[in-house]
Design a protein around this nucleic acid. Structure first.
Lengths: 164, 164
DNA sequence: GTCAGTGCAAACTTTTTGCAACTAC
DNA sequence: GTAGTTGCAAAAAGTTTGCACTGAC
């Protein structure tokens, strides 16, 4: 039931945000918010689009998704990431701060937490800037790809020898 | 002349990279590398394209720019960022590690350095992952936009009062 | 001489925009 | 009733791809 509470809370936050900014409270907007808060991890617009069509049987256009997600970002209920080709989003209310570890080869994204890192970032003094949120992306090779590369390299070398 | 040295060095690193991977050493590739290393800060493909056309009077197609920049990334001479709409790149040889402060309103990007942050990130223990590089983006409002917003908000409120 | 690399244009993908229809207020 | 929203389709923006030609090896 924890989950239901979160959904109710974010709906309320969204309502307040819409009121405060003179936006209308349309069913589309709430349906989008609900769907997003039932997704774990990252998603892009296309995934969200299919998900809503399939599960919620509430069809919204892509244009509306783009419009609404901007509102949700401003309401601090969603954050936007930009790894890979398309923008990725994720819910951010009641979520622990986390960082992203991205494999430059296979594109796999792993989230991790690190108290010390968070602390270091939060305590950074910024001049003439009001921090709202941050993203830390660590790029590198996941163990799987690293192993694959080692294997490939060995093969290449033996091939080179053969050629010569 | 420091600058010339850097350009020579990166050209050499690139040559080694191309040799090691069986790629050809075309004039286009070196012209692109040279142009990139004469740019301070970030650039996108389009900027690079115009810059080469205007200044270096060496015309290369966008396709070649995309191809070459992938090689440069692999050679660790360029890194890729993804804020805003188009991918941003920057040279990375002989540059101090720095972080990015991005205004969510006007899109302005400011670089800054912070020893403590760097240390914290570098010393983070990662499981099953080989770190190659990282990006820290701090999102928020620059002082200019913040001031503008305050002004706007005040105006809106007085307008509301009038309407009522 | 060969094949990787290039330029060009077309294709593709993601996001934005213009406009008519709709509906929350 | 009216102005903010929506859906749709077209357009824009960024990137990738196919193909014929070129030039590095």
């Amino acid at each position: 039931m924890e989950d239901k509470n979160v959904k109710d809370t974010v709906r309320q936050i969204f309502t307040e945000y819409l009121n405060a900014n003179g936006h209308r409270k349309t069913p589309e907007r709430y349906a989008i918010l609900d769907t997003i808060y039932s997704i774990d991890g990252h998603f892009d617009i296309d995934t969200l689009y299919s998900l809503m069509a399939d599960q919620e049987n509430f069809r919204v256009s892509r244009a509306t998704l783009y419009n609404t997600i901007i509102l949700l970002i401003n309401a601090r209920l969603v954050i936007k990431h930009q790894f890979g080709n398309s923008s990725q989003y994720e819910k951010c209310y009641n979520r622990d701060t986390h960082h992203h570890q991205i494999c430059t080869q296979c594109g796999k994204v792993v989230e991790f937490q690190n108290e010390q890192l968070q602390q270091a970032i939060a305590s950074t003094k910024l001049s003439r800037f009001t921090l709202s949120h941050y993203s830390l992306y660590l790029y590198g090779l996941c163990s799987k790809c690293e192993r694959a590369n080692r294997k490939k390299k060995t093969n290449n070398q033996s091939q080179h020898k053969k050629e010569k």
